[in-house]
Design a protein around this nucleic acid. Structure first.
Lengths: 220, 220
DNA sequence: AATATATTCAATCATTTTGTTGAATAGTTG
DNA sequence: CAACTATTCAACAAAATGATTGAATATATT
């Protein structure tokens, strides 16, 4: 029957989208690219995989329309096609974090491993900034900050933090964020700041989480 | 390194979720189960696949926590674990319909094949019901209606439609919906109604689409 | 307790996926 | 136009997936 055949074809096409995300490395690639566009070489370093393999994975993501390319001088820059990709990945994570006990355990391991005592979320940040004076710092590489950041956040890449301590207040609480729950940049920043007697806390969520939250609120 | 290893493990676990959805038949299973719980045998008929294979696919979905089971007499009833699964599938479809040209073509083929001249969406329904008197009918099997339906919709399963034409008004526009864009129940209903000189239109969206829309609006 | 029945398991084979290495390609820069 | 360099392609082996058939299991019914 033509009808059931078309239906089957639609499911086949849809499953190509999920198939593209069904590999850990490709999932990680999307996560990295959620921050900003990167070249194949940079990505291969980021996910700790050979350039050729990284390129293969990127082909898969590209053919599923999850990422797109653009030449920039000698490099080919890969980036996320649009926000629907971020929403999809966010839906996967939401389900995973909520339903898979194994993931919860791993996240706890991660926190224990990194000695993360306290960390807040976007909601906490909002509540907190109403009550007290805070300073929000973005400790990702500057290019990622430039590609998009949470309003009122100041860019202080982790690599520069030690030299720029004089820009930070001792009387305000400092909130540091980076790429999201699995990123360690903010964790390291907090460690340094606490050691230097600043009052500093890590926020788990990053810019992407913030952006998606805005879209959710702006609906209606 | 322990840290990167934990990260990798999280991605591996997350990709099990997408992997579960990375097969056309499993995608179809989730779609069927989005309407209501079903037994293995019923599902195997619905997706046109052997019982053993259907069972295997259901195991995969179950181990990824996308579906859960519950015994009911002689049967084991599979159902969607919770709404985060619906949101995930919805995100996949949103991305697919928007980005994959092939899918758009298939949907158009589907409409041409089924002689679908006009069909409206949930937004249209809302706008329309403010302007004129309409009657909304749900032509899915009664059990699916009972498991959840759009408010004010009347249940008239397609199989009963011919005998219950006297319940329908000639002076109102009749809107028929079923399981969603790929479901043909409402298409057939409209054909019959138009033939009998009713003013009837198909709505593409179904109950699941309505439910997710409500959640989106209730955010904030 | 015996029987009936729905579901799962096991074994199989063809197909696809994954990651590597080394060669080929295409586009840029000087 | 020549040289350079980032990226992709090709070929391979190991591992995994998908679908089938027939047997095994577990639960309910009589």
């Amino acid at each position: 029957m033509a009808a059931s055949s078309i239906k089957e074809q639609v499911y086949r096409e849809l499953s190509r989208v999920t198939h593209a995300l069904s590999n850990p490395k490709r999932m990680e690639l999307i996560d990295v690219l959620s921050q900003k566009g990167y070249s194949v070489e940079e990505l291969s370093k980021e996910i700790a995989m050979s350039i050729a393999s990284t390129s293969q994975h990127l082909q898969v993501l590209k053919s599923a329309k999850l990422v797109e390319t653009q030449r920039q001088g000698n490099f080919i820059i890969y980036s996320i096609t649009d926000d629907s990709v971020l929403r999809l990945v966010s839906a996967v994570k939401e389900l995973g974090y909520r339903k898979i006990a194994e993931i919860e355990r791993l996240i706890n391991d991660f926190k224990a491993d990194k000695n993360i005592l306290e960390s807040i979320t976007l909601d906490d940040l909002q509540a907190r900034s109403r009550k007290e004076k805070i300073m929000l710092i973005d400790v990702r590489p500057e290019e990622e900050y430039n590609a998009g950041h949470i309003p009122n956040a100041v860019s202080i890449p982790l690599a520069q933090l030690k030299k720029r301590l004089n820009e930070l207040p001792k009387n305000k609480t400092i909130i540091a964020y980076c790429r999201g729950p699995l990123c360690v940049l903010a964790v390291d920043a907090i460690k340094l700041l606490n050691q230097k007697k600043f009052k500093a806390i890590r926020m788990e969520d990053g810019f992407v989480e913030w952006k998606l939250k805005q879209q959710g609120n702006n609906k209606n």
